[in-house]
Computed example of a mutant assay.
Amino acid sequence: MRVQRRHVLAATVAVAAAAVVTVGTGLGFADTAPERASVCSGSVTFSAEGGAPAATSDRFPVGTRLRVTNLDNGRAVTVTVTGPSGSCVLLNAAAMDQVREPGRNVIRRNLVERLDGGAAQSGPGETRPGSARPGAARPEGDAPGGGAARRVCGGPVTFSAEGGAPAATSGQFPVGTRLRVTNLDNGRTVTVTVTGPSGSCVLLNAAAMDAIREPGRNVVRNNVVELLG
Rank of each mutant, 00 (worst) to 15 (best):
V3G: 03
V3M: 05
H7W: 12
V8F: 00
A11L: 15
A11C: 15
V13E: 12
V15D: 13
A17P: 06
V20P: 03
L27K: 12
G28D: 14
F29N: 08
F29R: 11
P34Q: 13
S38H: 11
V39L: 03
S41P: 10
T45F: 04
E49Q: 12
G50I: 15
G50C: 13
A52V: 15
A52L: 15
A54V: 13
A55R: 02
A55M: 06
S57H: 05
S57L: 06
R59N: 06
P61A: 14
P61L: 14
V62E: 15
V62P: 00
R65W: 12
L66T: 10
T69M: 11
T69N: 11
L71Y: 09
R75K: 14
T78W: 04
V81W: 00
P84A: 08
P84W: 06
S87Y: 14
C88R: 00
L91F: 06
N92A: 12
A93H: 03
A95S: 09
D97L: 13
Q98M: 09
V99P: 03
R100I: 11
R100C: 03
E101A: 15
G103F: 01
N105Q: 13
V106E: 01
V112S: 07
R114D: 05
R114F: 12
R114L: 14
L115S: 10
D116E: 03
D116I: 10
G118Y: 10
G125F: 10
G125D: 08
R128H: 09
S131Y: 02
P134F: 05
P134Q: 09
A137S: 11
P139Q: 13
E140T: 08
G141Q: 04
G141N: 09
D142R: 12
D142E: 15
D142C: 14
A148K: 13
A149H: 00
R150I: 09
V152H: 01
C153H: 05
G155Y: 02
V157T: 06
F159T: 00
S160P: 02
E162W: 07
A165C: 07
A165K: 12
P166T: 04
A168R: 05
S170Q: 06
G171L: 00
Q172I: 01
Q172G: 03
F173E: 02
P174Y: 01
V175W: 05
R178C: 06
R180S: 07
V181K: 08
V181Q: 08
N183V: 01
N183L: 02
N186R: 10
T189G: 04
T189I: 12
V190I: 10
V190D: 01
T191L: 01
V192P: 04
T193I: 07
T193C: 05
T193Y: 10
V194H: 05
T195V: 14
T195G: 07
T195W: 11
T195S: 12
S198M: 04
G199N: 04
V202Y: 00
N205S: 05
A206P: 12
A208P: 11
A211Y: 04
I212A: 03
E214Y: 05
R217H: 13
V219Y: 02
R221T: 11
R221Y: 08
R221I: 06
N222F: 07
G229D: 11
